[in-house]
């Protein structure tokens, strides 16, 4: 009976409910507020864009949710973040590790530094699987091959035994995406996933993210300072400036009818091609 009620409750609850998140950093003995009073709700399968200039607190908010901020110098000042009913900011480190590995996937900005250069791609992919499921090495290997093929890496069986330095930047980011989605997480956090890549590769990686997200029904938080990327990928946007929410709403609303002065200025600053004809 209670089980049934719980299920209904879970269904009604958003996947992620962030309330009044505030983060500060100590720098040169001074405390600086980097994120102030950030609140948002994320439904299953939805894509939310965190947009803003450098230093506006986009990445820090995500790292705070994941418990990956170095504390100190960082400090989560307050707020709550319910992920499937569990407050990520209060839960024990051990429990958070489990949630992070199983139910959340993360793709970081720079694929050249976010893979371990001393370990093979295969062992880095498989370790999460082996740690969080009771899968054996053979089964894990097969699953990894499947995951690499799903992100468009040919000859996956051979490539598993290779080290990151023989992969190109785009390939490494594909590996990161495969790694993040390996355990079918409910939430994918992509922290500027295409910033360090070539423009042509950017487009490939974005469409790959979109197809994999659609195939697995994963919700996504996309951190970006690229308004074009945000427009293409996101259902809803949050516009951050100096750690505060400047504007929030659907992508259409912000792009076609910006309310705040900052959003208007930002959109006006996007370079356009002058009409030649």
């Amino acid at each position: 009976m209670t089980h049934w009620i719980l299920k209904v409750k879970l269904k009604l609850m958003p996947l992620l409910d962030v309330q009044h998140l505030s983060v500060s950093f100590v720098h040169n003995g001074q405390r600086k507020h980097v994120v102030q009073d950030l609140s948002f709700v994320l439904e299953p399968g939805e894509t939310l864009g965190l947009v803003g200039e450098s230093g506006s607190g986009k990445s820090v908010s995500c790292l705070a949710l994941l418990g990956l901020l170095p504390q100190p110098p960082a400090k989560v000042e307050g707020g709550r973040a319910f992920f499937e009913g569990i407050d990520l900011l209060q839960v024990s480190e051990k429990r958070l590790g489990k949630i992070r590995g199983q139910s959340m996937g993360i793709v970081f900005q720079d694929p050249s530094s976010s893979l371990n250069p001393y370990l093979t791609i295969g062992s880095q992919l498989a370790e999460g699987l082996i740690a969080h499921t009771n899968m054996g090495r053979r089964a894990a290997r097969l699953k990894c091959i499947e995951a690499l093929e799903a992100v468009g890496i040919a000859d996956a069986g051979v490539r598993l035994n290779e080290y990151p330095h023989v992969f190109s930047g785009g390939m490494r980011q594909r590996v990161m995406i495969a790694m993040a989605l390996l355990l079918n997480p409910q939430l994918l956090i992509a922290d500027e996933p295409t910033t360090a890549l070539d423009v042509t590769v950017q487009a490939q990686i974005l469409s790959l993210l979109k197809t994999r997200q659609a195939a697995l029904g994963t919700a996504m938080i996309l951190v970006t300072h690229d308004l074009g990327v945000a427009a293409r990928m996101c259902d809803r946007l949050i516009l951050l400036r100096q750690g505060k929410v400047e504007e929030a709403g659907t992508a259409e609303a912000i792009f076609y009818a910006p309310q705040s002065l900052y959003a208007k200025e930002l959109l006006a600053a996007v370079p356009t091609l002058p009409a030649i004809v």
Binding site: L66, L68, G97, K98, I99, R100, G101, Q102, I106, F108, S113, S114, L115, N116, P117, E127, G128, A131, H132, M176, M179
Partner: peptide
């Protein structure tokens, strides 16, 4: 890559 490893919940 250490952050990545921690993100995997190891």
């Amino acid at each position: 890559f250490i952050r990545t490893a921690r993100a995997k919940g190891l």
